[in-house]
Nucleic acid binder design. Structure first.
Lengths: 217, 217
DNA sequence: TGTTCATGTAAACATATGTTCAGTATCAGC
DNA sequence: GCTGATACTGAACATATGTTTACATGAACA
């Protein structure tokens, strides 16, 4: 990697703000918005910084077009790597029905996507989302209608909240291996745990771990 | 998933073009650029399509701001399920402490931002996020450590889950006006409701409505 | 037949936004 | 002490872009 010229503190503040704004609002700020954020009253004050950033290779900008400031990939990465990152949105496929035997992440199953913060869910490549039906996990604060974010995995540790497929239907339970059987424990005092004996393990498929819950009120 | 209204061929062409342009150029087109691409000579011709797309829930647009057309997640997915999408996540400021008398959305209070899908939280301009401390709303599935998304508002309806400031501290409760007093009801059997008498209303400030909950597991 | 809706044209109009010019002040380096 | 880079203020100016109003056409529909 070629080394990019150093930035002054002020220039760094400008490009950071542009970067943050793009991530936060989806489009870059105007010159006046930058000025307002940094306390620069003259558009030309900001324009000077932008010229410097372009000259140093950190930024591109199309003349006479609004909101076309674009941090250059390499430059932006170097700058951002040194700073605490806010999260970026990642798109998670929202699945409708989930049935055994079918490829779980097949696109045909996606009913849409949901964008959430990468800080909240972690790596998104193996994630999908489901809408919860029923009250079996009410004690863990997972209610009917909630969206759950699931990391696709075939195994789990004791006590994990998992999505499993039993009898061609997906359910959410806590997972407890107990010798030659598995206990799937609902978090609802009025419901009984499900026990799976070793010889029936083949009928049960762990789909993944619940890593997040979202409820729209 | 709720079904979105059908699009006419022309409307589909418009949103496709917007999506393609964002992907190709990194920012959305202007009304005139859309018109040029589709052979529409009047800006109003394009504006009609944009209004229809917004009405049907496929598009958002900030008034009087250039290049702020943004396909909405659900709509865009139906149209372009295979394309990488940009810009449907919205950043919500995550506030640390919240104290009475201070401007609630002042930037100095933000400890960061959280990106969530606009279809989950709705209009983001008046939203902020808080991290929940304590178990007072456990019965409504809001647990210690959860993030809540709050729509800033000074009034509430009976039964709403609200964030209020009492004694300089923010708490989450259900709101019940009862004649000359207000009952703030925790969703935890072991906790007592808080009653605010009319003469003390000035000490209480409704900050906003809880519109969403996120839990990282 | 009359009405609504989708799809346009055309022409202002208002605002947002980028650009340029003329200065001022500080600081580091030669 | 001069010079260039940085970091601005202030005030036009030009262009880009969104908004609104008035009007037209054709298809769908009751």
């Amino acid at each position: 990697m070629s080394k990019l010229p150093e930035l002054t503190g002020r220039q760094r503040a400008v490009i950071d703000f542009i970067q943050d704004r793009i991530r936060a609002w989806g489009y870059p700020p105007t010159i006046r918005e930058i000025g307002e954020h940094l306390g620069i009253k003259s558009t030309n004050g900001v324009a000077d910084h932008l010229k410097a950033l372009q000259r140093k290779g950190y930024l591109t900008h199309e003349e006479m077009k609004s909101r076309t400031l674009r941090p250059v990939a390499a430059g932006a990465t170097l700058v951002r790597a040194l700073l605490p990152r806010a999260g970026e949105g990642v798109a998670i496929p929202l699945l409708g029905r989930v049935a055994a035997g079918e490829p779980i992440l097949a696109e045909e199953h996606a009913e849409g996507t949901v964008v959430v913060d990468s800080v909240l869910v972690g790596d998104h490549k193996t994630l999908f989302a489901l809408k919860v039906v029923g009250d079996s996990m009410i004690g863990d604060g997972i209610l009917d209608g909630d969206y759950i974010f699931v990391r696709k995995r075939a195994h789990a540790d004791a006590g994990d909240i998992v999505v499993v497929i039993i009898d061609n239907e997906a359910t959410v339970k806590r997972y407890f291996p107990e010798g030659d059987r598995i206990r799937l424990q609902p978090a609802n005092p009025s419901m009984q745990p499900i026990y799976i004996r070793q010889q029936d393990f083949k009928d049960v498929q762990i789909i993944g771990l619940v890593v997040g819950v979202y409820r729209k009120l």
